[in-house]
Amino acid sequence: MNSRRDFLQKIAAASIVVPFFPKTVEAATESYQGPLLRVAILGLGSYGTRVADAMQTCKKAKLVGAISGTPSKLKDWQSKYNIPEKNCYSYQNFDQVKNNPDIDAIYVITPNSLHKDFVIRAAKAGKQVICEKPMSVNAKDGQEMVDACKKANVKLLVGYRMHFEPNTLEIIRMRNAGEFGKIMFFQGLSGFRIGDPTQWRLNKQLAGGGSMMDIGIYSINGARYMVGEDPIWVTAEETKTDPVKFKEGVDETIQFQLGFPGGAVASCLSTYSMNNLDRFFLNGVQGFAELNPSTGYGPIKGRTNKGELSFPHVTHQTVQMDEMSDIILNGKQPIVPVDGAEAVKDLKIIDAIYLAIKTGKKVDVKL
């Protein structure tokens, strides 16, 4: 396995009815008539392609544009996804999208360090913005992205697909209902053996780090939505067994701990050197919940002290884009936030983890 992003999955989707809007466009389905979020994807790599494929079965979002630094990819996408040439842009000229009324939102799916510039440019063009996670390489840049979108009066959402996953949401519902009692402990294991040593994820300038900026953020974010609180301190230790592959500033394995105001603690692992690590475990005084796998492309498997969870698998990116259409067009409030402010919190925790590694000390976190 070269990457968790190479997992295969079946395309599926769930229909959700939304209120009628005065300005509506008929979706490419007989079961839904309502507003469509018309999306251009910026960054046509493997994950951009995964999102594009998943959007073919969306009810409320439609892929209508493509933005890339590679002309041949634009030609391929025009053919594969029936995208008009007038809705295709290069990285150099995509600011002209401001004059294109057929595109509502731009989904930025590039290497991490490029997110900030593209998000701010999209906001200045007056388009709604969706950005892959981590939203940026540090909290300072992330906050500047949030501020730029606020100034431009556009929404900034982040690709937290797990925030819409039914097994995950059921555990959150049970926790909120008090079914696990007081939460005491969370464990998050996030890792895989990364392949090609020349890929951008192992380039400090493009990725902003290593495993923590790619896979570890799942345990950070998962700890927050599973425990139901934001941490107030972190400790962390780094292990590096291959300094040739994992150069300075590119973390291979990080163990980190989080402390929460209610007394719960989390013990987490982020790694690029071990497979079979995709598990969340939540423990309360009256019960437990487990997701294993917890964040892969699916199917997600869940169980609690009350038994197995049996929600059918749906393609995460399909559901994500339909839900984000509802958020942008209808003002829907998701159960777990997916906005830029949510992403800045994760970036602050990542900043604190790297500081804890550097100093060898517990670092207080203020979110």
Rank of each mutant, 00 (worst) to 15 (best):
I300P: 01
P197S: 05
K247P: 03
V227T: 02
D95Y: 08
L114V: 14
P299S: 15
K60C: 07
A40Y: 00
S3K: 06
I106N: 06
M145A: 09
N305A: 04
P71H: 10
G340M: 02
L74P: 13
G222K: 03
S211G: 01
T168S: 10
D104T: 09
D102V: 11
P261L: 04
N330G: 09
Q92K: 10
E252G: 02
M321C: 14
D278R: 01
S72R: 14
L206S: 06
A12P: 08
E170I: 01
D95L: 11
V119S: 08
E132Q: 09
S113D: 14
R161K: 09
E170A: 04
Q33R: 14
G69Q: 14
A177Q: 04
Q96D: 10
P293A: 04
P111I: 05
P134K: 09
L8K: 15
I41V: 13
N176D: 07
V97F: 13
A12S: 12
L74K: 15
L169P: 00
C58M: 05
A148K: 04
Q33S: 15
R224S: 03
Y160R: 00
A12C: 11
N292I: 10
K140N: 10
M212V: 13
A61R: 00
R38C: 08
Q286D: 05
G249K: 06
T271D: 01
T304N: 04
F20R: 11
V363W: 06
T253R: 07
Q78P: 07
Q56R: 15
R50Y: 11
Q96V: 06
E237W: 02
C149L: 07
K23D: 05
F260Y: 04
Q9H: 15
K245Y: 08
D102S: 12
P261N: 06
I232E: 06
V146I: 09
I41L: 12
T70S: 09
A61E: 04
M213P: 04
K124I: 02
A264D: 01
E132P: 10
N99M: 06
K140I: 12
A264I: 02
G195H: 06
S113C: 14
P111D: 10
Y107S: 13
M135L: 15
V129F: 15
V39G: 13
K151C: 09
G142C: 12
E238G: 02
T24N: 15
I171S: 02
E85M: 12
P243Q: 03
N100M: 05
E144F: 10
G34A: 07
A66G: 13
L206Y: 05
T295C: 08
A139K: 01
I41S: 01
V363G: 03
G48Y: 03
G228S: 05
D251Y: 11
G191K: 02
M162P: 07
G191C: 08
S294K: 12
A13N: 14
G65T: 07
N292M: 12
K10A: 14
K127I: 07
L169Q: 06
D242I: 04
V344M: 02
W77E: 10
V25R: 08
T241C: 05
A289T: 00
P166I: 10
V25A: 07
G302T: 10
F185W: 04
L258K: 00
V344Q: 02
K348I: 01
V158T: 07
G210K: 00
Y297R: 11
K306Y: 03
M162C: 09
T295V: 12
L63P: 04
K240G: 00
N138E: 09
D339H: 03
A61D: 03
V119E: 12
